[in-house]
Amino acid sequence: MVLVINQVITGLMLGIMYALIASGFSLLFGVLNVVQFAHADVCFLGAFVSMAVMTFLSKIEFFPTWLVIFLTVVSAVLITGLIGSIVEKICVKPFRKSPGLIILLSTVALGFIIREGIKIFYPSGASPKLFPLSFPQWAFSMGGVTVRFSNIMIIIIAGIIYFLLSIFINKTKIGLQIRATSQNVEAAQVLGIDLDKIFMITFFLASTIGAVAGILNGIYYNIVKFDMGLMGGIIGFSAAVMGGLGNVYGAIIGGLILGIVESFTMAFVPGGSPYKEIFAFIVVVLFLLFKPSGILGKKVIEKV
């Protein structure tokens, strides 16, 4: 039982990372009806940006450590958001009139450009990088169940992000416009909503959330590598599909399920740890077969 609870905790951590990435996928799909496949790469780019910023800031001697960390996180998140909106300009805007699959192709290609770009242009980017930030090592144990400070912090941070996101979407004017666009693009356009602006803001938003996911990932697993975005992208996309593409809350549930499935596979299936992704994909395929619209997704009837 103790083991199960410990595994649930580790699975939850992984699940939160997946969920944060998957929410980005869902947010973008909801508004634009496209899959931005390079999203996970943008997320991990966030981690690399924060590393670069941190190296730069720690050269300025008179900054206290807490300020360095604060500035690092804030600027990395903002820069990644900007990169997200640039991605929209390069890879999505020219294809807005083309079939959605063209955007999938162009963003898959972009993902490769980001990954290989990091590998080639980041100093010795081919090898895994030790992430410079980490949470304090506090922990308390109760009957064998260990809860660490980092676990609690990650849950709190994820909670805050989703709280802010829901306020932004539901309470602000731009949020209203985003919701309107996601319901019906033409009608939104008729009502005078500036689509270019909405698309840019959505990309900014999704990428900032992604940057947080990338940084949390670096903090929790101590390591970032240029090619993490590939698997992260496929699993994040899967989680979003499981939850129902376009539904952010569904993406959270999908991410958590996949995280826990992976961690349980590693612990309880004999010799199962190399196959953990396979078990995750089997769950996804089962969902596609029996509930193609996802956990919280609505059934879409295509109209001409």
Binding site: S106, F112, E116, G117
Partner: peptide
């Protein structure tokens, strides 16, 4: 792979 990515986007 970087070049392949760039080629795909440029061609598209």
């Amino acid at each position: 792979m970087l070049f392949y990515g760039i080629i795909i986007i440029l061609v598209l």
